[in-house]
């Protein structure tokens, strides 16, 4: 049985799109909540410096700590994105498993 590549590609795309669409809202909500926290912390550092409660040196150290915390959050977002891609690829392979295995005559996928 011949495989029609355009049809196979569309099946894979449809399966993977569903997974990615499902994952994005969770990633987006997480990112939004975390960046709000970071913004609030930075605003507090500025307020404390303006009130004379933080020297410039201390303000810089505080900011460095906030930047590293933000980088940690961004890495989580990256990781969640990669896991979403992984699930999408596996969903795509799953969608065409029967078609391909039937065409090739043995359990390839």
């Amino acid at each position: 049985m011949a495989i029609r590549v355009p049809s196979l590609a569309k099946q894979m795309l449809d399966a993977s799109r569903g997974v990615l669409e499902e994952s994005w809202p969770e990633i987006k909500d997480y990112a939004k909540a975390e960046f709000k926290k970071t913004a609030e912390s930075i605003a507090m550092i500025v307020r404390l410096h303006a009130a004379g409660k933080l020297t410039q040196k201390k303000a810089r150290l505080h900011l460095e700590i906030q930047k590293n915390a933000s980088r940690t959050v961004l890495l989580t977002i990256e990781g969640m994105g990669i896991i979403a891609v992984e699930r999408a690829i596996n969903a795509a392979l799953g969608a065409v498993r029967d078609t391909v295995n039937t065409a090739i005559g043995f359990r390839l996928i």
Binding site: E40, S41, I45, H62, I65, Q66, N68, A69, V73
Partner: peptide, 10 residues
């Protein structure tokens, strides 16, 4: 406060 928040966030 911002220090505690940063470590919690991390």
């Amino acid at each position: 406060e911002p220090l505690r928040a940063a470590f919690q966030q991390s």
